[in-house]
């Protein structure tokens, strides 16, 4: 579905209809009526995206706490919120966790997704049916998936430890140990991302012209060589879209982490996004929360720029 978003930007709109040739006044009326189609949406986006982004920047320079809601006062504090954010030991932890969470999730989702896409491309009995069933996890709201995984990963009676127990393994404290919690959370996020990666990469593979493989096989390029010289170059633009979209979405993940660990134990699964939530809605330090969110926005925007330039290039190709 994200692929169709691509199309939306890249494709040039068809030349506008000339409208009614005729009196200038009629033309002005037409022009106004055209704007009326778009204006409500422009206004909505301005109020619900434009305003929050600006407001967030303003708040990040204020001492904005619960008191503000009663007194209406939010004193200016300059860069104190940012200074406090960068100086706290938690910041380094969250940056490292965010990086591990994002990179770990994306790499594994992509590799497994590509593997499954290549696997399902070979037509075998039930392949279409099995590929359809792969989408089943999508039916669950994210927080429901978190609940199911929290139960599966439960130390005392969770399914995973019961299963490992069959081989004599002692119960593993997946979500309770600060050393393991991040790994467990990344694992769940990988599971969530596999259907998306498989689906998009599979449709990318479908678009590779079969003649290419036939021609290449005459030159002796089969198996790994066929993948390297035909498949990979053909799906590269799809790959870049999948990866960059994946990064942008993974950076803002909050649901899974709050559901599984709440950022704990001992902040071992706290990321920039969950920390922004904690500052604002647990500690009620809205100024500091805004500062952390702005750091997150900057990181996302670096990827947004990469994303847009890549998708432009992909469409041009």
């Amino acid at each position: 579905m994200s692929v169709s978003v691509e199309t939306a930007v890249g494709k040039r709109a068809p030349a506008a209809i000339a409208g009614h040739p005729g009196r200038p006044r009629a033309r002005v009326v037409t022009s106004v009526s055209r704007w009326l189609f778009i204006a409500p949406a422009v206004l909505y986006v301005a109020v619900f995206f434009g305003y929050p982004v600006v407001k967030n920047i303003v708040m990040s320079f204020q001492d904005y706490t619960t008191r503000t809601f009663f007194t209406g006062e939010a004193p200016w504090v300059g860069v104190a919120n940012y200074a406090a954010t960068f100086r706290s030991s938690l910041f380094a932890t969250t940056v490292v966790n965010t990086a591990l969470f994002t990179v770990g999730s994306i790499v594994a989702q992509f590799v497994i997704g590509l593997g499954l896409a290549l696997f399902f491309r070979r037509h075998f009995p039930l392949s279409g049916f099995l590929r359809g069933l792969l989408l089943l996890p999508w039916l669950l709201p994210l927080i429901a998936s978190s609940a199911v995984w929290k139960w599966i990963l439960d130390q005392d009676s969770g399914a995973l430890n019961q299963f490992l127990g069959l081989f004599g393994a002692p119960p593993v404290p997946w979500l309770v140990s600060p050393n393991l919690a991040l790994i467990a959370v990344i694992g769940v996020n990988i599971w969530l991302g596999i259907p998306f990666n498989t689906t998009i990469l599979y449709s990318g593979l479908q678009s590779v012209p079969p003649e290419l493989y036939e021609a290449a096989s005459l030159d002796g390029a089969v198996g790994v060589r066929a993948f390297r010289y035909i498949t990979w170059p053909s799906i590269r633009s799809v790959v870049s879209v999948v990866i960059v979209l994946g990064v942008v979405y993974t950076l803002k993940v909050v649901d899974i982490i709050l559901g599984l660990t709440g950022g704990g134990p001992a902040n071992s699964t706290q990321t920039l996004a969950t920390n922004a939530y904690h500052q604002s809605f647990v500690n009620f330090q809205f100024g500091e929360g805004a500062a952390v969110s702005n750091v997150l926005i900057v990181v996302s925007f670096v990827f947004a720029i990469v994303y847009i330039s890549l998708s432009r290039k992909a469409v041009d190709e």
Binding site: V5, V9, V248, A276, Y277, F286, G289, A304
Partner: peptide, 22 residues
């Protein structure tokens, strides 16, 4: 405006929530 619509997809929900709460 189309570009803005794409950019909105990158903005973390927590940013929106933070400002909308106030």
């Amino acid at each position: 405006f189309l570009l803005v619509l794409l950019v909105t997809q990158m903005i973390p929900t927590i940013v929106i929530a933070n400002a909308l709460y106030t």
